[in-house]
Design a protein around this nucleic acid. Sequence first.
DNA 1: AAACTGTTCAACCGCGTGACC
DNA 2: AGGTCACGCGGTTGAACAGTT
Length: 339
Amino acid sequence: MGRTPCCDKDEVKKGAWSSEEDQILFDYINKHGHGSWRTLPKNAGLLRCGKSCRLRWTNYLRPDIKRGPFTPDEEATIVRLQGELGNKWAAIASHMPGRTDNEIKNFWNTHLKKRLSTPPPALPSTNIKIEGDSSSPLATTTRHIAQWESTRVEAEARLSSLRPGQQQQQQHKFDQDYYLKLWNSDIGKSFRDINKVQKDGRGGGGCESSTSQASSLTKLGSGSVDDDTLATTTPTTTMTKTCSAAATIKRSASSEAIHHQHEVEGGLCYYYEGMEETKPCHLDVMMSSSDSITSTTNEFTNYSDTALKQLLDIPGGSGMDFLEDESDDFINFLDLRCV
DNA sequence: AAACTGTTCAACCGCGTGACC
DNA sequence: AGGTCACGCGGTTGAACAGTT
């Protein structure tokens, strides 16, 4: 007793939809609702399978669909939910208004999965360039934030892929994975503490995720920022040894490399190299007001004077060599930097 | 300029499931 | 209770496009 076919395959059209077909389907559903998908094609005058109509509507024609590339926040959400829910694309999509399960699934398969399965040859840390003098406080701190954000997303993705209780059992993963290593290092802890301080100190703003915090901060780096202005408006504080766990590390020779940048609506989008692929780092919002730059920078610099100023401009090939070093040299190095 | 290779994503396919008869 | 229908889901495919040689 087999299943009756959903439609006569000889009489239905397959393949890409034409704009005329789209219009017919769109108009019909707007006017009548979709009703029974099985009978819709006949009623609407389309030579399509009902299934095909449903797919076209839900994945493409639906008016509430959000188009365009995934934002870093969305990317982080997908990674987190995929770790929690597995390949339940519809469930994941239900947490992301305007995104379809198909779109999320495709994005996962073509971007995220690949990235998570391939150990990076190097952190993206040294290849981000901020317009203007790259040695300026703004450029440095912004680069650190962007670097950290990349690392945080990668580490969280790996952590979320482990089921509860597995993390202890899979200590070896922490030992072998660059991002997890960094995440668990003193540097990572330092940076997480900073984020925590930021959250706690803001009162009422505590619900903001670290992702969005960092994302908002990364916006600093994309504008045509006047470093002279920043130099005069950015308060400086005395660095103390409280930052001993964080690293001030000299910029590597390749730090000025940037793959390319291009203008997008509202600003510039930078692309950098460093992982297995070139990808947008989403420093993508042009700050148009110097006042807003200044105020955000002031807020940011309060933290950047400790670890924020110091993270992730890591020397050497993999950039993670320091993690291999169990000696005191690294800490000594940090201490020297922090005095 | 052409051939080849890799990537992306819309669309298809088959299966599971719940509702209905 | 069992058969059928309709829908939704996840895996897979393949056309179109981009990049490289």
